[in-house]
Design a protein around this nucleic acid. Sequence first.
DNA 1: TATAATTTGTCCGTATGTATA
DNA 2: TTATACATACGGACAAATTAT
Lengths: 240, 240
Amino acid sequence: MGGLHLDVKYKVICEEIAKNIREGLYQDTKKLPTEEELIEQFEVSRNTIRKAIDLLTRKGLVIPIQGSGVFLRSVSMDGAINLEDFHGLTHGFGENHVTTKVNSFKLIEADEKLAQVMQCEKGTPVYFIERLRSVAGVPYVVEYSYYNRELIPYLSEEIVKGSIYKYIREELKKSIGFVDRVITAGILNEHDARELGLTPGEPSLISTNRAFLKSGVIFDYSIDIHNYKETKFLKLSNYL
Amino acid sequence: MGGLHLDVKYKVICEEIAKNIREGLYQDTKKLPTEEELIEQFEVSRNTIRKAIDLLTRKGLVIPIQGSGVFLRSVSMDGAINLEDFHGLTHGFGENHVTTKVNSFKLIEADEKLAQVMQCEKGTPVYFIERLRSVAGVPYVVEYSYYNRELIPYLSEEIVKGSIYKYIREELKKSIGFVDRVITAGILNEHDARELGLTPGEPSLISTNRAFLKSGVIFDYSIDIHNYKETKFLKLSNYL
DNA sequence: TATAATTTGTCCGTATGTATA
DNA sequence: TTATACATACGGACAAATTAT
């Protein structure tokens, strides 16, 4: 799940509690055990428990209220993309439900404009991929992606058919550090409309993304044209 | 900043550093001083500095890289709504640039459907407000808002003309706890198109929001129909 | 209504690990 | 290899908000 270093205590505990939440373990009280109880349960310090809860909070699963407890944040996330906890479509919807049609897969050289947004040299070899991704058989998003080959040295039709992010994490063992996402609405052109089973001129929900490795370099630039009838972005924020 | 309890050390330090960033103090190195230096500068513990940096990271201003430093995250936020750090239009764009036209302002009773989304009793008195908000003279968003009068006991035409959130924070002295936001795209109807100076059938970028007080109750439910030609949502995420 | 108990929030200090330069 | 700089983890003390008595 992105962080990958699951050997870290607070992340393990976070995952464990998240699993408990999914399985409905806290449904009677609608809140987590107290910090004190979790400390005993996991045999770690208070700081570590608090870091785990902080992670759960940032993912939008719980909301701590001083003096009262850590409450489940019951929001229906089904069929929505949680912007706080997004690691690719397959991770969110399950590998079985997501099917991918590869419309284009080629190696190109970055022109001036692409080089600028990807913060690389002009002429850098870049994989260009166009994919139509469907969820449960329904066209969901047309993705236009660019991957810097100097950072992602090998991609194949096979990999591109599945989850590229999963490949980067699990095979290349590279850690994704952070992502910039700009969300807008636009008008479908003929090509994208046809792919999505919609009509040109209808709206689209667009996400333009730049993904960075932990070292701070951009390895992926992509433009996602979403089916506006199917896509919901979820943003669960806490006041800072 | 919303949290308001600026008497808390790490929030004060966060604001201080944010101000420094805005003023270009770290532009030469493009990174913050080391934790050690910040500890000396602010005369606090390492934990407190780290909490401040954590806040800055969550707001999307910096990105810490282990072994290297805390780097400025140079993303142009101009004209965009940063989903991580949003406390009302006026807060983001400046009070002078935002003008508000109140199209409707009345007290109603929550019907079954509204009561359900606002998690209140059917029949609860609720303020209904329709506003057109413009930025620098350009129509930006049509807002349909519902405020629970049992939580926000008084609203006037005057307040509604300005920033309601500011009023809640500064006059009512209530702390906003968290917000659920669902972002979708839709098709403009005749009314909203006219308000936004667009054409019916054109796209809209829609944000449907529920805002909670720290105690966990919903005080505001609103549907924002954004001018798709003007609005960009920004989501700067770190991998968790 | 007032008090005490419960529960999370802030802040301090220290030690050790890990990634980068 | 060494030094630097952030990450993880432990411990304790007190404050603040809520809940129960």
